[in-house]
Design a protein around this nucleic acid. Structure first.
Length: 249
DNA sequence: AATTAGTCCAACCGCGAGGGG
DNA sequence: GCCCCTCGCGGTTGGACTAAT
């Protein structure tokens, strides 16, 4: 069953915004704040919120991305994947949509031209070499086996001890990056990360929570509780991966 | 000048989380 | 516990604009 579009029943306006509509939004926000997007406008509330957050907010930057911002986006993407809202929080005046668009239109292409895979952040040569190794594995299990490995690795990435370089890309699934590690590995010369943006009560999504767990918990008890829960989840995924492996073989 | 191809970004869509009744 | 609604997120699309032919 496909969920109907949220605004079908309201017969509201869609498409590009006019100056008049922008003015109405601004007036509405100045009067009522941003807490409720459902009243007072002929647009879908969702659309109003998007227009405000991506375009009308007063502190948004309009100029193009600086090299420092660019580098920070690349580093953060390598660490946490396409969690644009989290990345955007490190770039004052930029929205998740800005960052996402910039990544999709410029940075992906730029990295590819540099011979770096924008998904894994590894050099293409290394990826080809890896595939060569996989292809060299014996017999027919190869493909499924590598898939299973991928599944396992996705869920069970552990930080390499005594390795200061950035952690591996983990677009999907869990990583064990905590806030300090992120701050350490991502900080580039001339770039200052904004720690509180990783750890506010209301902006952590479930993935970010995993990344930020050690710093977001205010007491040792809370930290160990959440860490224990994460261990359990990882154990579950480990068992799942083993089960999958057994099933496929 | 007209047409085509490529780029960019604003806006939409579908989904999950969370809160209230 | 269930349903409905809103919010926030990431992925995708539409179309305006520009460059190339």
């Amino acid at each position: 069953m496909v969920r109907p579009p949220c605004c079908d029943k309201l017969n509201v306006k869609k498409g590009l915004w006019t100056e008049e509509e922008d003015a109405k939004i601004l007036a509405y926000v100045s009067k009522h704040g941003t807490g409720n997007w459902t009243a007072g406008l002929r647009r879908c509330g969702k659309s109003c919120r998007l227009r405000w957050t991506n375009y009308l907010q007063p502190d948004l930057k309009r100029e193009s991305f600086t090299p420092q911002e660019e580098e920070l986006i690349i580093r953060l993407h390598a660490a946490i994947g396409s969690r644009w809202s989290l990345i955007a929080q490190q770039l004052p005046g930029r929205t998740d949509n800005d960052v996402k668009n910039y990544w999709n239109t410029k940075l992906k292409k730029k990295l590819s031209e540099m011979g770096i895979d924008p998904v894994t952040h590894k050099p293409f040569s290394q990826i080809l070499a890896d595939y060569g190794n996989i292809g060299g594995l014996p017999k027919s299990r190869t493909r499924i086996g590598s898939l299973n490995r991928d599944v396992k690795n996705t869920f069970l990435i552990k930080p390499e001890p005594h390795q200061p370089q950035a952690p591996p890309a983990a677009t999907h699934g869990f990583t064990n990056i905590n806030n300090n590690q992120l701050m350490t590995t991502m900080a580039a010369p001339g770039i200052e990360l904004i720690p509180e943006n990783f750890v506010t009560n209301n902006n952590i999504n479930h993935h970010a929570a995993a990344d930020c767990v050690q710093e977001s918990s205010s007491t040792t008890t809370e930290r160990s509780f959440v860490a224990a829960m994460l261990d359990q989840v990882q154990e579950m995924f480990s068992e799942f991966a083993n089960l999958l492996e057994d099933t496929c073989y």
